[in-house]
Write a protein that binds this DNA or RNA. Structure first.
Lengths: 271, 271
DNA sequence: GAGTGGTCTAGACCACTGT
DNA sequence: CAGTGGTCTAGACCACTCC
């Protein structure tokens, strides 16, 4: 006689289904039995069946669709973002001819997709600096900032995407009025080229990486599932004079993003 | 007359409570009204109240304790890990005298805690390379590896910690038998010094950062809450001859960890 | 023993999706 | 229209904590 299983029945059901998914018995995209059906099969109440299914959703294994059913999720392909190489690439691109700069942007560089497969959106606005951003930019709270919001989606899929918000000091950006108009986006050559038109050269960048649950707004834009988290990156760019010139917050769905940072170490002194 | 709120009642309750927490009306550590009490106050069933409380747990705002009540979680202090600086620091430390090397390790450098406040654990074993690790190390599947597991905890708190697993090719490590014995841990000067005893100098390192739900084992070791995620970092070290010499997987509780990578850009060519 | 959160039942109505 | 998942009720028993 085997030992009694003392775990809650909904956990047992969840694990049974998880094993079926792991074994491939329930393949990606497959439709699970409906809730009333599972309740009948197992002799459990629909409430307990729903608890089991919620567990599977928290594990990221299934997706429930209202009116349709519950499906096994495809294993997400993670987009690899190599930010160190990317930032250098973006900077170097500035001195290429416009035809070349026009051909691709940062997202294409990251994802391997082509320009025509992506839908690019930009929206500018003017805001007063809150304490957080003001501290990073070393300006007084309330300073006028140019707030630039970007989001990119793949045309083919309804797939999620990325969203980011960038802040520049308005007075600085206004030295070139073209930088204040979001109808000039996508700007060939990106932010580095935009900054170069007002004599700014970025010297170093810092990425601060954090994982957290998404805000309600991010749930809507990125269409994350319940229980999903996001990777949030705060990128701070400092120019050759040591002045912070841009603060940008980017948010990615954590389950389809990986970040790679390559680090070169200095050699030991010869002894 | 204001517009009717069409959202589910449990969402409305969750947001009301969230606002109270945000405003500080319910401070960190405060006890929420019990479930029957909330049900009575709002006229909702206990099931709906529980749905609201689950939402708050998914947001990471409260923690339920069986038999006690539901408490507002303290905002976690995030430990900042500056891996680029850390790796360089670890490498440079090798050529310092042993008394200095003995005084602190990587975790103290990261967290600002002192040696005597930390509990350090190391356990070595020998394993056969699986496909994943074999690929990274460029060795055949099944090659003998030295598997080194580390975990560190703060003595004061029952606080979570970090855990990591490092893999070296056994044949390589065995060139210095002292490297095979975990009773020599913590080794003054860390892995870089260990490798230096067999003539290996690390040239560059790559961090691959991913956020994901914790494995059952990680839940136990890191004592994460339901719905929490972890940050998993795969660090690959390559020596000056271009050979991968170490693969290490580190796991951190995502809600109390931030990673910072500072990136120096090359200057534009003078024109 | 009283009170808490965790599990569970057996219903009900709803919004949404397909045919 | 029937079937799906989403919401909701009004109960019940349990394990656990604290007094």
């Amino acid at each position: 006689m085997t030992e009694r299983d003392w775990r809650p029945r909904y956990v047992q059901l969840a694990e049974e289904l998880r094993e079926k998914i792991d074994r491939g018995e329930l393949a990606a995209g497959a439709l699970l039995p409906s809730e009333p059906e599972l309740a009948a099969q197992t002799g459990m109440s629909r409430t307990s069946v729903r608890n089991a299914l919620r567990q599977l959703r928290e594990w990221g294994l299934v997706r429930a669709e209202q009116g349709r059913g519950t499906y096994v999720r495809a294993r997400k392909v993670r987009v690899t973002r190599r930010n160190i190489e990317r930032y250098q690439w973006e900077k170097d691109r500035v001195h290429q001819p416009e035809e070349v700069r026009r051909q691709s942007g940062g997202t294409e560089h990251d994802t391997g997709l082509e320009v025509h497969q992506l839908q690019f959106h930009a929206k500018y606005s003017t805001v007063d600096a809150n304490e957080d951003i003001a501290n990073v930019l070393s300006v007084p709270v309330g300073t006028k900032l140019l707030r630039r919001m970007y989001w990119t989606s793949a045309k083919s899929e309804d797939a999620p995407l990325s969203m980011s918000v960038s802040y520049l000091v308005h007075e600085v950006a206004a030295q070139n009025p073209a930088l204040l108009d979001d109808s000039n986006e996508p700007w060939p050559g990106g932010t580095h080229h935009q900054l170069s038109t007002i004599g700014v050269e970025v010297d170093h960048v810092s990425d601060r990486v954090v994982a957290r649950p998404p805000s309600p707004n991010e749930v809507e834009v990125l269409r994350t599932e319940a229980g999903d988290w996001v990777l949030a990156i705060r990128k701070v760019s400092t120019d050759v004079n040591g002045r912070v010139v841009e603060v940008a917050d980017a948010v990615y769905p954590a389950d389809r993003t990986e970040l790679v940072y390559g680090i070169q170490l200095k050699p030991w002194d010869k002894k």
